[in-house]
Computed example of a mutant assay.
Amino acid sequence: MIEGRKRGSLAGIGFNPARQFKIILPAMKINSISIRLIRRSAELWHAPRPVPADDFPYFDFPLVTVGTDEGVEGYTMEYCPLGQGRATAYGLKDIYSIDLLGQNPLHHEKIWQRLRAKQRHLYNVTPSMWSTLDVALWDIKGKVAGQSIASLLGQYRDRVPLYATCAPQTITTPDEVGEAVADKIKQGFAGVKLQFNGGAARDIPRLRRAREVAGPGYPLMVDAAAGLMFEDALKIGHVLDELDYEWFEEPFSDANVLMLKKLSDTIRTPVLAAETVSLFELPHYMIGGAVDLVRGDAHHKGGITGIMKALGMCEMMGYGLEIHTAATPLHDVANLHVGCATRLSRFLESHHPMFRFGLKNDPLRVHPDGCQHVPNGPGLGVEIDWDWVDNHTVEVI
């Protein structure tokens, strides 16, 4: 703090070398972790079609509050569309409370390294779970400093072009693809990504239709979500070259390093992969030339702390890193702050409206310039709509 000022706040203080300030960061401690389960009906995800009988009827999103003895709170939220919401919420509480309680939240690197070391024997838990907690620490840090997370990271820009991902369950025919692409362009997005892995015979007509509707030069991408065999991926890749797509994302599993490299060496369209690769496995994909572009985000790569390490790694190796959606609103706000602290990401990703809720003033909207604009308030810089949250909370842990 600045002596004589309220402890825990540096907001509004400008540096003047002619004046002598004694700056003492507060020795705060984490004293609580609480989690709400926020429930949303799966009807929104599947509309206008009904929810399939063999699918989950709702998504439960764990909203995490990390409290401190100074009264500053940090917020974060977990990914959960496959029925793992409640299990993840209890996992966060049971596994990691002991590692955070009593710690200074401003010492994010110390906590990050502690969680990284613990991961060695968490065989049934991925690093993505504790990545979530790292976001809350950065939210606290920004609030204490009175600065946005982007500013603390060394802000490079204040907005990033935004592309829309068309959810695959609602577009199956070429005509539906054309309508979806036209709708996203009309909404003002700077690009459109399709999610297809039906094989070459089914996917190529849909990819062609998307280009017909979008016209030449408009950014289009395709994500196969690891669902193709090499023969189909190769046929599709050559068509993507012809149609001038921006990238071919995860044509098959990230574990198939040799196939990724073979495809990358054969087609002109950049192969984007390594989304599911951990931070410490990532160098091997770049050194071996298995990918042309790296995929990552603040959820999959170890929180804000981890994705910044990944970005540094990519910059040193000459690779771009395209930031992936985390499919939760608070985590995607974190991705927006990260995207504004680097030049390596050409785009940010906007997924289904299912993942846009509980925040006032819609900070993840597309602006008329086709971009997302980073909030400039302290920390994540967003205001949670607690009335909405209360109305959709089904359990408090």
Rank of each mutant, 00 (worst) to 15 (best):
V271Y: 03
F280V: 10
D232H: 12
F248M: 06
I236L: 02
S264N: 11
L258C: 12
L228S: 06
R268W: 08
A226Y: 11
P219N: 08
E249Y: 12
A226R: 13
F252A: 02
P216K: 09
W247S: 01
E246W: 01
D244G: 01
W247D: 03
V239Q: 09
E275R: 13
E231A: 13
H238I: 01
L243T: 02
G237H: 00
A226Q: 15
V277W: 12
W247C: 07
L279R: 14
L272W: 11
K235D: 05
K261S: 15
D232F: 03
L228Q: 12
E246A: 11
M229K: 15
L263H: 08
A225K: 09
L228E: 11
L279T: 10
V239I: 10
L263K: 03
G227P: 09
P251T: 08
D265G: 03
H238T: 06
P219T: 06
A274P: 06
A273M: 02
L243K: 01
L228H: 09
E250L: 03
F230D: 09
S278W: 13
A273C: 11
T266G: 02
L234I: 07
K235R: 15
N256W: 08
A233S: 05
I267G: 01
K235T: 04
I236E: 03
D244K: 09
D244N: 15
G227N: 05
G227W: 10
M259R: 08
L263V: 05
A225C: 04
S278N: 13
Y218M: 11
L243M: 09
A273G: 14
A214D: 09
E250P: 01
F252H: 06
E249F: 09
V222L: 06
D223Y: 13
D223W: 06
F280G: 01
K261G: 12
Y245V: 00
M221C: 01
L228C: 02
K262A: 15
V257M: 15
V277M: 10
L260S: 07
E242S: 04
N256D: 12
V257G: 11
L243Q: 03
G217W: 04
V271S: 05
E246G: 08
F230M: 14
Y245F: 14
A274I: 07
E275H: 14
A214I: 08
D232Y: 07
G217V: 07
E231L: 03
H238P: 04
L263F: 06
L234Q: 11
K261D: 03
V271Q: 07
R268F: 07
F248H: 02
A226V: 06
G215M: 03
L220A: 09
E250Q: 14
S253A: 15
M259V: 01
V277G: 10
F230H: 14
K262G: 02
S264G: 15
V277L: 12
G227T: 09
L234H: 08
T269Y: 08
D241L: 00
H238F: 12
M229V: 13
L272H: 15
A226E: 12
V222D: 02
